[in-house]
């Protein structure tokens, strides 16, 4: 077989622009970032960078700020995944139940609209909603005689504030994934279980949740990847602060890049990439094994 059979030639032509973009803006940058992560920062952008081996990785891994940032990222991811997927599951079950009837579309669109709202604009609005002097949030809490919320101004609550804003932007996506799966579920099964005397909790636990396995798996993996990479919300609302409370790894790496530490920035980035791949592969593997 020759490499370029006549009848294949036209397909190479069709795929050429797609291949060019993938190479130039995908594979080349990935290789470059690995190369830069092994180079000295001051020479990293030059034609002939000076290679320093694993030095950048060693520097990053020995940096207590990076360790703190990584730990913070993992804690935030665990919390955000649990809250987002949990909320989305509960909300989707509510919208899917027969009691809702009319209004279902409105309730669905209300939580999905933020997904297609430019995240930057959404987070700008949230940043001001949290504002201590004229944000609506604390005014609303005061109206209800509830204690005030520190929001992004206090290290104790900044992570929670970021989480709420991200929930607003992302949860609708997880909701519609659950709704799509619920639409495929066999309602007769749950009804039969009800007739057999199963409680609502038993129906959920033994009849509905097993059928929702595919959506739970997809949402968990998407949410894991999403929240490990949390970036825009930090840039807009907190700049990693206050006092480093929201300095997650992607923002940590970006700051290094901004300071011209290209080697360390890409090393930190590559470590995050390895964690993203590792954790998603682990989640995928666990889910597959549970299914068998």
């Amino acid at each position: 077989m020759t490499l370029l059979r006549h009848q294949d030639r036209v397909f190479y032509l069709f795929a050429a622009p797609f291949a060019a973009l993938t190479l130039v803006f995908g594979l080349w940058p990935i290789l470059l970032s690995i190369k830069v992560s092994l180079s000295e920062s001051t020479t990293a952008l030059a034609r002939a960078p000076r290679f320093v081996g694993w030095e950048n990785y060693a520097t990053i891994l020995a940096d207590p700020l990076f360790a703190a940032s990584l730990a913070r990222t993992l804690i935030y991811t665990a919390l955000a995944v649990a809250v987002n997927v949990g909320f989305a599951l509960a909300y989707a079950l509510l919208l899917n139940s027969d009691v809702i009837g009319r209004g279902r579309t409105f309730f669905k669109l209300a939580v999905f609209l933020p997904v297609v709202t430019p995240d930057l604009a959404g987070y700008v609005v949230w940043r001001w909603l949290y504002d201590q002097s004229f944000g609506a949030l604390n005014a609303g809490l005061a109206l209800l005689h509830l204690p005030g919320f520190g929001g992004i101004a206090s290290p104790a609550t900044a992570m929670l504030a970021v989480l709420i804003a991200e929930l607003w932007h992302h949860a609708g996506f997880y909701v519609v994934i659950f709704l799509a799966n619920l639409a495929l579920c066999d309602k007769a099964l749950a009804e039969a279980a009800a007739i057999d005397g199963a409680s609502a909790w038993q129906r959920l636990r033994y009849v509905i949740l097993p059928q929702l396995r595919p959506a739970i798996l997809i949402n968990l993996i998407y949410a894991l990847i999403q929240f490990l990479k949390t970036f825009t919300v930090v840039v807009v609302m907190t700049k990693g602060g206050p006092n480093g409370a929201t300095n997650f790894v992607s923002y940590f790496a970006y700051r290094l890049f901004d300071q011209g530490e290209y080697g360390q920035a890409t090393a930190a980035g590559t470590i995050l990439f390895a964690i993203v791949i590792g954790i998603s592969a682990l989640a995928y593997g666990l889910a597959k094994r549970g299914q068998a």
Partner: peptide
């Protein structure tokens, strides 16, 4: 697929070099 799995915000740094 590999490209699409790469954290987007980290890809942008080397893309700057490209």
């Amino acid at each position: 697929l590999l490209t699409m799995m790469y954290p987007y915000m980290l890809l942008v740094i080397p893309v700057y070099i490209v």
